[in-house]
Amino acid sequence: MSLDKATVRSIAALARVHVPEEELEHLAGELSRILGWIEQLNEVATAGVEPMTSVVEMRLRMRADEVTDGGLQEEVLADAPERAGPFFAVPKVVE
């Protein structure tokens, strides 16, 4: 699979990562090489093989529905770029 500049531009937009126009060409080459190398997986017969999502054979646990922590407002807000009282003050993210 060979990616062109336009495809890289659209993947970058999907990933919300700004890529300067002058780097697109080079990046397309790199990503194409990586994807070309990855494609050797097509040689492997995998019909009937279940996709592996976890290496640990386990079921997710249920836990009691109870409050285990909380009251950490000051700690949680410590990294806030800006705050308004007990809230994060951030650029408008919901139109």
């Binding site: 999907l14 919300r16 700004h18 993210v93």
Partner: peptide, 26 residues
């Protein structure tokens, strides 16, 4: 907002991380 995300992530991530995010997204 869109541009803030893109600029932040474009400036904040280095080349290898960016490469892997793009491969993963693809």
């Amino acid at each position: 907002l869109e541009e803030m995300y893109e600029r932040t992530r474009g400036a904040g991530f280095g080349k290898e991380v960016r490469r892997r995010i793009l491969i993963g997204t693809y």
